[in-house]
Simulated assay, not measured.
Amino acid sequence: MKVLFFSSENSHHDCKWINQIAIENEVEVIASNVNRVNQLNSGIRLHKILPPYSYKTRNRKETLDQIREIITNFQPDVIHSMYLFPNSIWANQSGFKPHVITTRGSDILVEYPNNYHNVTSKFKPLINRHFNKEGKLALENAQFVTCTSNLQKERIKHLTSSEVQIIRTGVDVAKIDLTLQKSESRRNESYTIFSPREPRLIYNLDIIVKAFHIFLSYCENAKLVMLSNDSDYSRKVKQICEGLGLKKNVEFIQELGFKDLMQQYASANQVVMIPKSDGTPNTALEAMLCKVPVILGTATYDNDLFNQKTVSQLSNSDHHTLALEMKRIYEMDKAKLSEQIENASNVVRNHANLCDSIEQIIKIYSAISK
């Protein structure tokens, strides 16, 4: 089968699906013309042609001609757009069918209801109306829509009558198991709390730092490991650490490769993430599979994966509440804690396995391309 994706070659989630599907199918990818790190497997042809999306028809004509030429040359059986805005709009305007759309929490739950907050043009109201109209049209014209959470599904159902199915990105259970088997199983000498989300304002890393500062009064040898990058927000988080005198207790690391990330999970005592909004975070699922206690914030999560038997979820995402939850897990009865992390690991194996997700997607392709 031939599949043409509209996607981002630097998206970890997108590339997991695309690389897996490309093992037994012929795949090409259309992506933004912005220079990004390519996480696609070698052998997958990448067309970096998409400019910033313009609401003006004349500004899109040349790109749509290029898209149609790629379609003519490749002759796909199906087009699959990752993200509603703007990838599915480009795909829909190409006129090709069948078309599958996969939404994420960041576009259908954040960009859409918040009127595309990154748009700063004086024509913002006009641009918002255009995006809303074209997004709904893409959903309505799609032969199938997938999403990664119940909340996304509810939102999509308000926008389209197209068939919608929850198919979570999933984690590569077999690969993680193999990686952990080959790695030395060890905990850090210090009691370690790992924050795996990237330094962005939406992920509330500053609150995690302040909570950790309080937690140190209960566990003096504790260590906090956080990701770092060259953003203003990352620098702000580091300044907060310095102001609280946490230089010796907080370790900032760069984004990790797969093997190192799994080892980081396995050596941690807690994994913490308290974003302002969220979907079905693979970071949480990976930590659960690695049998590490996970603390989540107040975002709405699917109860079949994230519940009181599998994770800890805060009632308030303030640093005092988080510090108390860190303390509760630190002091938790070992047998009860072991039961929770075993439950969590089994839930991921049974309900969020990448292989199962790919199998469902291939079945959809086969059904709509006949």
Rank of each mutant, 00 (worst) to 15 (best):
D77T: 11
T103S: 03
V100A: 01
S54I: 01
K97E: 11
H99Y: 01
K56S: 07
R36M: 11
N118L: 14
N87T: 10
F96W: 09
L84Q: 02
Q75W: 05
I30G: 08
C147A: 12
R36H: 11
S54C: 02
N35S: 13
P113D: 08
R45A: 11
V27E: 09
K61W: 05
V29N: 10
K56H: 11
V110M: 10
G105D: 10
R58D: 15
L46I: 13
I101P: 01
G95D: 10
K122Q: 09
V100T: 04
E111S: 11
N25E: 09
P113A: 08
F123S: 10
N150C: 09
N33G: 03
P86A: 05
K124G: 03
T103E: 00
N33I: 13
Q143T: 10
T72R: 15
S81W: 00
L84C: 09
Y53E: 02
I101C: 03
S149Q: 11
N128H: 10
Q75N: 13
R129H: 09
S94P: 03
E111I: 04
N128G: 00
Q93V: 02
H99I: 01
V119S: 10
G95I: 10
P113L: 05
L40Y: 00
K61D: 12
L109P: 00
R68L: 06
V78A: 04
W90Q: 06
I67T: 03
G95M: 11
G95R: 07
F74Y: 14
K136V: 01
R36W: 02
N25S: 07
A22W: 10
Q93D: 14
K122S: 14
D65G: 04
N25I: 12
S42K: 14
E24T: 15
G43R: 13
A22N: 13
H117Y: 13
N92E: 14
L64W: 07
N118W: 15
Y116M: 03
T72I: 11
A138Y: 09
K48I: 02
D107N: 13
T102M: 06
Q93G: 00
S106Y: 12
I71F: 07
T120P: 01
N73C: 11
